[in-house]
Amino acid sequence: MENHEGISRRGFLKALAGAGTLLAIPAVPGLLTPLFRRPGPGEAVAYRDEAAAAKGTAASKVAGSKLRQWAMVVDLRKCDGCVTIDEPPQCTQGCIKEHFVPEGQKWVQVYQRELAGGGSAFMPTPCYQCENAPCVNVCPVGATYHNEEGIVLINHDRCIGCRFCMAACPYQRRFFNWGTPELPPEARFASYSPEYPVPARRGTVIKCMFCAHRAAAGKLPACVEACPMNALYFGDLEEDAATNGVEVVPLSAFLSENNGYRYKEELGTRPRVWYIPGHGETFDRLARDERPLGQSKW
Protein backbone atom coordinates (compact mmCIF):
# COMPACT_ATOMS: atom_id res chain seq x y z
CA MET A 1 0.00 0.00 0.00
CA GLU A 2 2.23 2.73 -1.28
CA ASN A 3 -0.43 5.36 -1.32
CA HIS A 4 -1.27 6.53 2.11
CA GLU A 5 -0.62 10.22 1.84
CA GLY A 6 -4.12 11.06 2.99
CA ILE A 7 -3.23 9.55 6.33
CA SER A 8 0.49 9.50 6.98
CA ARG A 9 1.06 13.06 5.87
CA ARG A 10 -0.20 14.20 9.18
CA GLY A 11 1.69 11.87 11.44
CA PHE A 12 1.37 14.22 14.35
CA LEU A 13 -2.38 14.46 14.02
CA LYS A 14 -2.49 10.75 13.69
CA ALA A 15 -0.85 10.32 17.05
CA LEU A 16 -3.25 12.80 18.52
CA ALA A 17 -6.20 11.07 17.01
CA GLY A 18 -4.92 7.73 18.19
CA ALA A 19 -4.61 9.07 21.70
CA GLY A 20 -8.04 10.59 21.46
CA THR A 21 -9.42 7.31 20.20
CA LEU A 22 -7.96 5.38 23.09
CA LEU A 23 -9.48 7.85 25.51
CA ALA A 24 -12.78 7.65 23.76
CA ILE A 25 -13.23 3.89 23.56
CA PRO A 26 -15.23 3.64 26.77
CA ALA A 27 -17.48 6.39 25.53
CA VAL A 28 -18.24 5.22 22.00
CA PRO A 29 -21.68 6.81 21.67
CA GLY A 30 -20.33 10.14 22.86
CA LEU A 31 -17.60 9.98 20.27
CA LEU A 32 -19.87 8.99 17.46
CA THR A 33 -22.05 12.05 17.56
CA PRO A 34 -19.29 14.53 16.73
CA LEU A 35 -17.63 12.00 14.43
CA PHE A 36 -20.63 11.92 12.17
CA ARG A 37 -21.63 15.49 12.50
CA ARG A 38 -21.38 17.30 9.23
CA PRO A 39 -19.27 20.45 9.34
CA GLY A 40 -21.31 23.54 8.73
CA PRO A 41 -20.36 26.26 6.31
CA GLY A 42 -17.11 27.96 7.25
CA GLU A 43 -16.09 25.28 9.70
CA ALA A 44 -13.67 23.72 7.28
CA VAL A 45 -11.41 26.73 6.86
CA ALA A 46 -8.46 25.78 9.05
CA TYR A 47 -8.63 22.02 8.87
CA ARG A 48 -5.16 21.69 7.41
CA ASP A 49 -3.63 24.16 9.82
CA GLU A 50 -1.73 21.71 11.97
CA ALA A 51 -0.29 24.29 14.35
CA ALA A 52 -3.72 25.61 15.18
CA ALA A 53 -5.08 22.13 15.54
CA ALA A 54 -2.25 21.10 17.83
CA LYS A 55 -3.25 23.75 20.36
CA GLY A 56 -6.52 22.00 21.08
CA THR A 57 -7.17 18.48 22.19
CA ALA A 58 -8.27 15.74 19.88
CA ALA A 59 -11.82 16.19 21.06
CA SER A 60 -11.98 19.87 20.28
CA LYS A 61 -10.55 19.16 16.86
CA VAL A 62 -13.33 16.72 16.19
CA ALA A 63 -15.87 19.29 17.22
CA GLY A 64 -14.14 22.06 15.34
CA SER A 65 -12.76 22.52 11.97
CA LYS A 66 -12.35 19.49 9.76
CA LEU A 67 -13.82 18.16 6.59
CA ARG A 68 -14.58 14.49 6.90
CA GLN A 69 -13.00 12.15 4.40
CA TRP A 70 -15.14 9.07 4.71
CA ALA A 71 -13.66 5.61 4.35
CA MET A 72 -14.67 2.04 5.00
CA VAL A 73 -12.83 -1.05 6.16
CA VAL A 74 -14.18 -4.55 5.58
CA ASP A 75 -12.71 -7.07 7.98
CA LEU A 76 -12.98 -10.29 6.00
CA ARG A 77 -11.87 -12.28 9.04
CA LYS A 78 -15.27 -11.49 10.46
CA CYS A 79 -17.30 -11.72 7.27
CA ASP A 80 -18.86 -15.15 6.88
CA GLY A 81 -21.37 -14.06 4.23
CA CYS A 82 -23.99 -14.61 6.95
CA VAL A 83 -23.92 -18.33 6.05
CA THR A 84 -23.17 -19.39 9.63
CA ILE A 85 -26.34 -17.66 10.79
CA ASP A 86 -28.22 -18.96 7.75
CA GLU A 87 -29.37 -15.57 6.55
CA PRO A 88 -28.99 -13.63 3.33
CA PRO A 89 -26.12 -11.13 3.63
CA GLN A 90 -27.38 -8.61 6.12
CA CYS A 91 -25.34 -5.69 4.74
CA THR A 92 -27.07 -6.10 1.36
CA GLN A 93 -30.37 -6.51 3.13
CA GLY A 94 -29.91 -3.43 5.31
CA CYS A 95 -28.92 -1.37 2.28
CA ILE A 96 -31.96 -2.52 0.32
CA LYS A 97 -34.25 -1.56 3.19
CA GLU A 98 -32.63 1.79 3.80
CA HIS A 99 -32.76 2.97 0.19
CA PHE A 100 -35.68 1.01 -1.24
CA VAL A 101 -33.09 -0.33 -3.67
CA PRO A 102 -34.93 -1.26 -6.89
CA GLU A 103 -35.40 -4.96 -7.43
CA GLY A 104 -32.45 -6.78 -8.91
CA GLN A 105 -29.85 -4.25 -7.77
CA LYS A 106 -27.40 -4.92 -4.96
CA TRP A 107 -25.56 -1.73 -4.15
CA VAL A 108 -23.63 -3.61 -1.49
CA GLN A 109 -23.15 -7.03 -3.00
CA VAL A 110 -21.42 -9.99 -1.35
CA TYR A 111 -19.27 -11.99 -3.73
CA GLN A 112 -17.74 -15.37 -3.15
CA ARG A 113 -14.05 -15.43 -4.03
CA GLU A 114 -11.93 -18.51 -4.47
CA LEU A 115 -8.95 -18.95 -2.20
CA ALA A 116 -5.53 -20.03 -3.39
CA GLY A 117 -5.69 -23.56 -2.01
CA GLY A 118 -9.37 -24.16 -2.65
CA GLY A 119 -12.28 -23.04 -0.58
CA SER A 120 -13.71 -19.57 -0.63
CA ALA A 121 -14.03 -16.26 1.13
CA PHE A 122 -16.85 -13.73 1.02
CA MET A 123 -16.32 -10.19 -0.07
CA PRO A 124 -18.88 -7.45 0.56
CA THR A 125 -18.54 -4.74 -2.08
CA PRO A 126 -19.96 -1.27 -1.60
CA CYS A 127 -19.05 1.47 -4.06
CA TYR A 128 -15.36 2.05 -3.42
CA GLN A 129 -15.65 5.85 -3.65
CA CYS A 130 -12.37 5.96 -5.59
CA GLU A 131 -10.29 9.11 -5.28
CA ASN A 132 -9.24 8.71 -8.91
CA ALA A 133 -12.71 7.59 -9.90
CA PRO A 134 -13.00 6.40 -13.53
CA CYS A 135 -16.75 7.05 -13.43
CA VAL A 136 -16.32 10.68 -12.41
CA ASN A 137 -13.58 11.13 -15.00
CA VAL A 138 -15.69 9.99 -17.95
CA CYS A 139 -19.07 11.54 -17.09
CA PRO A 140 -19.86 13.91 -19.97
CA VAL A 141 -22.17 16.17 -17.98
CA GLY A 142 -20.69 16.19 -14.50
CA ALA A 143 -23.69 14.31 -13.14
CA THR A 144 -21.44 12.12 -11.03
CA TYR A 145 -18.98 13.91 -8.81
CA HIS A 146 -17.08 13.84 -5.52
CA ASN A 147 -18.63 15.76 -2.71
CA GLU A 148 -16.23 17.56 -0.42
CA GLU A 149 -16.13 14.60 1.93
CA GLY A 150 -14.86 12.33 -0.83
CA ILE A 151 -18.09 10.48 -1.57
CA VAL A 152 -18.97 9.86 -5.23
CA LEU A 153 -22.54 11.04 -5.71
CA ILE A 154 -24.92 11.14 -8.69
CA ASN A 155 -27.16 14.04 -9.57
CA HIS A 156 -30.18 12.28 -11.02
CA ASP A 157 -31.61 15.53 -12.33
CA ARG A 158 -28.65 15.86 -14.64
CA CYS A 159 -27.73 12.26 -15.55
CA ILE A 160 -28.47 11.63 -19.24
CA GLY A 161 -28.27 7.85 -18.87
CA CYS A 162 -25.39 7.20 -21.28
CA ARG A 163 -23.92 4.57 -18.90
CA PHE A 164 -20.33 5.47 -19.76
CA CYS A 165 -19.64 5.53 -16.00
CA MET A 166 -20.79 1.92 -15.81
CA ALA A 167 -18.51 0.96 -18.68
CA ALA A 168 -15.63 2.73 -16.98
CA CYS A 169 -16.14 1.34 -13.45
CA PRO A 170 -13.63 -1.48 -12.98
CA TYR A 171 -15.65 -2.87 -10.05
CA GLN A 172 -19.09 -3.13 -11.60
CA ARG A 173 -20.52 -1.09 -8.74
CA ARG A 174 -23.01 0.95 -10.74
CA PHE A 175 -26.55 0.07 -11.67
CA PHE A 176 -29.02 1.41 -14.16
CA ASN A 177 -32.74 1.81 -13.78
CA TRP A 178 -33.64 0.21 -17.09
CA GLY A 179 -37.36 0.51 -16.59
CA THR A 180 -39.51 2.30 -14.06
CA PRO A 181 -38.15 0.94 -10.77
CA GLU A 182 -40.48 -1.21 -8.74
CA LEU A 183 -40.69 0.49 -5.39
CA PRO A 184 -42.81 0.08 -2.28
CA PRO A 185 -45.35 2.88 -1.84
CA GLU A 186 -43.52 4.45 1.09
CA ALA A 187 -40.50 5.15 -1.16
CA ARG A 188 -42.63 7.71 -2.95
CA PHE A 189 -42.70 9.88 0.13
CA ALA A 190 -38.94 10.25 0.37
CA SER A 191 -37.57 13.58 -0.74
CA TYR A 192 -34.84 13.06 -3.29
CA SER A 193 -31.29 14.31 -2.90
CA PRO A 194 -28.02 13.01 -4.40
CA GLU A 195 -27.11 11.93 -0.85
CA TYR A 196 -30.31 9.91 -0.60
CA PRO A 197 -31.42 9.06 -4.16
CA VAL A 198 -34.88 7.79 -3.25
CA PRO A 199 -37.13 7.15 -5.05
CA ALA A 200 -34.92 5.74 -7.81
CA ARG A 201 -35.62 7.18 -11.23
CA ARG A 202 -35.90 5.50 -14.57
CA GLY A 203 -33.13 6.07 -17.08
CA THR A 204 -30.46 7.05 -14.59
CA VAL A 205 -27.46 5.37 -12.97
CA ILE A 206 -27.52 4.64 -9.26
CA LYS A 207 -25.19 3.13 -6.69
CA CYS A 208 -24.02 3.01 -3.08
CA MET A 209 -23.29 6.52 -1.80
CA PHE A 210 -21.85 5.54 1.60
CA CYS A 211 -25.17 6.55 3.15
CA ALA A 212 -24.16 10.19 2.92
CA HIS A 213 -27.54 11.16 4.36
CA ARG A 214 -26.93 9.07 7.47
CA ALA A 215 -23.43 10.40 7.97
CA ALA A 216 -24.86 13.90 7.91
CA ALA A 217 -27.28 12.85 10.62
CA GLY A 218 -24.53 11.32 12.76
CA LYS A 219 -25.42 7.73 11.98
CA LEU A 220 -23.40 4.83 10.60
CA PRO A 221 -24.20 3.55 7.09
CA ALA A 222 -27.05 1.08 6.93
CA CYS A 223 -24.79 -1.83 5.92
CA VAL A 224 -22.38 -1.18 8.81
CA GLU A 225 -25.26 -1.03 11.24
CA ALA A 226 -26.88 -4.15 9.79
CA CYS A 227 -23.79 -6.37 9.87
CA PRO A 228 -24.35 -8.93 12.64
CA MET A 229 -20.63 -9.77 12.69
CA ASN A 230 -19.50 -6.15 13.00
CA ALA A 231 -17.19 -6.77 10.09
CA LEU A 232 -17.74 -3.36 8.49
CA TYR A 233 -16.04 -0.23 9.79
CA PHE A 234 -16.91 3.28 8.77
CA GLY A 235 -14.46 6.05 9.47
CA ASP A 236 -12.76 9.28 8.61
CA LEU A 237 -9.32 9.50 7.02
CA GLU A 238 -8.78 13.01 8.44
CA GLU A 239 -9.63 11.82 11.90
CA ASP A 240 -7.81 8.53 11.31
CA ALA A 241 -10.48 6.62 13.15
CA ALA A 242 -13.10 4.10 12.20
CA THR A 243 -15.84 2.23 13.99
CA ASN A 244 -18.05 -0.76 13.44
CA GLY A 245 -20.50 0.54 16.01
CA VAL A 246 -18.94 -1.49 18.81
CA GLU A 247 -15.31 -0.50 18.88
CA VAL A 248 -13.34 2.40 17.51
CA VAL A 249 -10.03 1.66 15.82
CA PRO A 250 -7.17 3.92 14.79
CA LEU A 251 -7.65 3.59 11.07
CA SER A 252 -4.13 3.65 9.63
CA ALA A 253 -2.65 1.51 12.38
CA PHE A 254 -5.53 -0.94 12.04
CA LEU A 255 -4.90 -1.28 8.31
CA SER A 256 -1.13 -1.62 8.63
CA GLU A 257 -1.22 -4.13 11.45
CA ASN A 258 -3.78 -6.30 9.72
CA ASN A 259 -2.38 -6.21 6.17
CA GLY A 260 -5.18 -4.06 4.81
CA TYR A 261 -5.40 -3.80 1.05
CA ARG A 262 -7.64 -2.25 -1.56
CA TYR A 263 -9.28 -4.23 -4.33
CA LYS A 264 -7.42 -3.96 -7.67
CA GLU A 265 -4.99 -1.52 -6.11
CA GLU A 266 -2.86 -1.76 -9.27
CA LEU A 267 -5.46 0.16 -11.27
CA GLY A 268 -4.60 3.35 -9.44
CA THR A 269 -8.21 4.19 -8.68
CA ARG A 270 -7.32 4.74 -4.99
CA PRO A 271 -10.51 3.39 -3.45
CA ARG A 272 -11.66 4.60 -0.05
CA VAL A 273 -12.56 1.06 0.95
CA TRP A 274 -9.99 -1.29 2.45
CA TYR A 275 -10.13 -5.01 3.12
CA ILE A 276 -8.51 -7.01 5.91
CA PRO A 277 -7.84 -10.46 4.43
CA GLY A 278 -9.69 -13.42 5.88
CA HIS A 279 -12.49 -15.90 5.32
CA GLY A 280 -14.73 -15.51 8.35
CA GLU A 281 -12.38 -17.35 10.72
CA THR A 282 -13.36 -15.12 13.65
CA PHE A 283 -16.71 -16.86 13.62
CA ASP A 284 -15.21 -20.28 12.96
CA ARG A 285 -16.12 -20.39 9.32
CA LEU A 286 -13.72 -22.78 7.60
CA ALA A 287 -12.21 -21.78 4.27
CA ARG A 288 -13.71 -24.89 2.71
CA ASP A 289 -17.14 -24.29 4.17
CA GLU A 290 -19.45 -25.10 1.26
CA ARG A 291 -22.57 -23.35 2.48
CA PRO A 292 -23.82 -20.96 -0.22
CA LEU A 293 -24.80 -17.34 0.21
CA GLY A 294 -28.42 -16.77 1.10
CA GLN A 295 -30.64 -15.01 -1.38
CA SER A 296 -31.29 -11.40 -0.53
CA LYS A 297 -34.94 -10.59 -0.12
CA TRP A 298 -36.27 -7.49 -1.69
Binding site: N137, V138, V141, G142, I160, G161, R163
Partner: peptide, 21 residues
Protein backbone atom coordinates in the same frame (compact mmCIF):
# COMPACT_ATOMS: atom_id res chain seq x y z
CA UNK B 1 -29.09 4.65 -26.35
CA UNK B 2 -29.66 7.37 -23.73
CA UNK B 3 -31.80 6.73 -20.69
CA UNK B 4 -32.85 10.38 -20.88
CA UNK B 5 -32.75 11.44 -24.54
CA UNK B 6 -34.61 14.63 -23.69
CA UNK B 7 -31.59 15.66 -21.64
CA UNK B 8 -29.16 15.35 -24.56
CA UNK B 9 -28.71 19.11 -24.47
CA UNK B 10 -27.03 18.70 -21.08
CA UNK B 11 -23.96 17.92 -23.18
CA UNK B 12 -23.98 21.57 -24.19
CA UNK B 13 -25.16 23.06 -20.91
CA UNK B 14 -23.02 21.00 -18.53
CA UNK B 15 -20.51 19.46 -20.95
CA UNK B 16 -17.22 18.41 -19.40
CA UNK B 17 -14.41 18.58 -21.90
CA UNK B 18 -12.59 15.89 -19.86
CA UNK B 19 -15.07 13.27 -21.03
CA UNK B 20 -14.45 11.33 -24.26
CA UNK B 21 -18.17 11.60 -24.98
Amino acid sequence: DLGHPERALNLVIFGRYQSPI
